[in-house]
Design a binder for these strands. Structure first.
Lengths: 296, 296
DNA sequence: TCCGATTATATTCGATCTGACAATAAGGGA
DNA sequence: TCCCTTATTGTCAGATCGAATATAATCGGA
């Protein structure tokens, strides 16, 4: 799963009909899967991968279907890069990840269209459970994941939300029969096999990671304004954050330093340009970073 | 990596000469590696594994040595259980994990014996680097990981500390030549292959996880006092925490409920017995938990 | 039975952090 | 010059956290 953010949209490198994550068997010529992945993607996109993290290893039998009895082991990775110049080729392209998870984008301030439809269908599913105990359990899981009652929307629950929708048969991949899922504009674009689940895993991981590790900078150009940085974080988190508070945290942690230049991009007062202080990668690679996004 | 805590010591299930983590190939009869692991351990210890989490998948070539050209894929897991009755058999036993990492146990209030020796040897290693730039970089890594200068000791850096010691040739596994490592009382008991590194990975993961997920309870008996709970957390974290603050956080998060009984274990006022509120596993499985251990 | 040792439990206080909001600064364009 | 837009700085109240203090209950021995 290769991620970049451009023009405020979190993008995803896909192959095929934009329904497949880049993948492939890795040969003995690579010392590790990581280096194999790195070489493959750098060759395809022409841009180096700044950050690679292992996501999860799937080794379940029957993962690729009940007919094959051989076990397939898939190691999934999350990689961050920058989408620049001519990277899209005939074999791969970039897609906004909210095409696959329309309900995850809360940056407009109001809930995305279709979220209420999903909530209603989920409530139906809750009532479809047999005994009351199971109903209560389903009801609570939906309430937490989708912010029912007066709960806050928690953007880190992407994976749990996808799993609930899958269980309720509300995404196309869950073709166990039952009722038809809502239209794609509501339930999102499907992917092959369990790729969309891997994607949800990556989104969840990334959304929690940006809060305590300085990984956002892998997605930024060498110099940037604080608002650009904020927009990138918002793109990943899928929600708006307070501008002054964001600046305060970034500055007091000394994550960035001024270049001295300013940018006059869009109308308004010119913004100072900053660069990431590479030094903190040593200082704070473990030490931790904070972002202002606890509740609300 | 199977972990339990008994009598305030974090213990580890080992096989062989207490230098090997339980492991083995898994067969097609298991639906997933998880279920294979669960069955294996439950058969050995007679106690169910409460919690299993995937740690990391190693797929590097040459991992088992340069002679074998076949790639070995190892998926490592972290499992929590309780050490009860007759679990130790002839094939496996429990070891305190601080036997492998003596420098990680700061529960006495003072730094463990031998930590200063390691620090001194690490400084030697820093000076052994060729150019000054590399020296500075090593120096900073050591300072962060081992709390040099006036930095706080960060108990979550177990893995980074082990990797530094390995790089500096101060643990037995790093037999790349060079000087002999310090005695085992200082540098800890070695394990076969990279098992000690996996262990360090698990310790790091667990120490950070207990701060935001209610996993400690998998290590507790059905009822317990708040001090027992605190001692368990301290055993994992390797440091002492403030009693009133610990109680406050546990109570205000409604993680536990009183049973009505009291315990008269050691002298002093009887302590109320509590049980874990299973309900929060649904409520807060994602929502998060907090423990009072930010800084020193 | 009284006292002190020991541990449990409850409370307080101040420093810090955080979220929400307001105010001022610096450009561009009509 | 006025106004619109964005950048940047500042304020303030509530929540949180770490540290320390105060009170309660039991046991064992004098």
């Amino acid at each position: 799963m290769v991620v970049a953010v451009n023009h405020g949209e979190p993008c995803l490198l896909t192959i095929g009909q934009a329904d497949t994550l880049p993948s492939g068997p890795f040969a003995l010529e690579h010392r590790s899967p990581q280096s194999g992945l790195r070489g493959w993607v750098e060759h395809q996109t022409g841009h180096p991968l700044g950050y690679i993290e292992q996501l999860y290893t799937f080794a379940d039998r029957d993962r690729v279907g009940p007919e094959r009895q051989q076990r397939v082991i898939s190691i999934s990775y999350l990689a961050l890069t920058r989408k620049e110049q001519a990277t899209a080729s005939s074999t791969c392209g970039w897609q906004s990840w909210y095409e696959y998870f329309p309900w995850e984008d809360h940056r407009s301030g109001t809930p995305p269209v279709g979220l209420d439809i999903l909530r209603a269908r989920l409530i139906e599913w809750v009532h479809g459970a047999g005994d009351p105990a199971r109903q209560r359990e389903r009801r609570q899981r939906v309430a937490i994941a989708f912010g029912l009652d007066d709960r806050h929307w928690n953007e880190e629950l992407t994976l749990q939300r996808y799993e609930l929708l899958y269980e309720a048969g509300l995404v196309e991949e869950a073709s166990g029969g039952k009722a038809a899922p809502p239209p794609a504009a509501v339930s999102g674009k499907a992917m092959v096999a369990d790729h969309r689940r891997i994607l949800a895993t990556g989104v969840t991981r990334l959304r929690s990671k940006i809060k305590y590790r300085p990984v956002v900078f892998e997605l930024m150009r060498p110099t940037f304004t604080l608002l650009q940085l904020q927009r990138t974080v918002e793109a990943l988190a899928g929600r708006l954050i307070d501008k002054p508070n964001f600046r305060r945290l970034v500055e007091q942690q000394e994550l960035v330093e001024e270049t001295g230049d300013t940018s006059v991009d869009t109308g308004g007062r010119p913004a100072k340009l900053y660069r990431f202080r590479r030094a903190v990668l040593d200082e704070r690679a473990f030490a931790g970073t904070k972002l202002p996004m606890s509740r609300a």
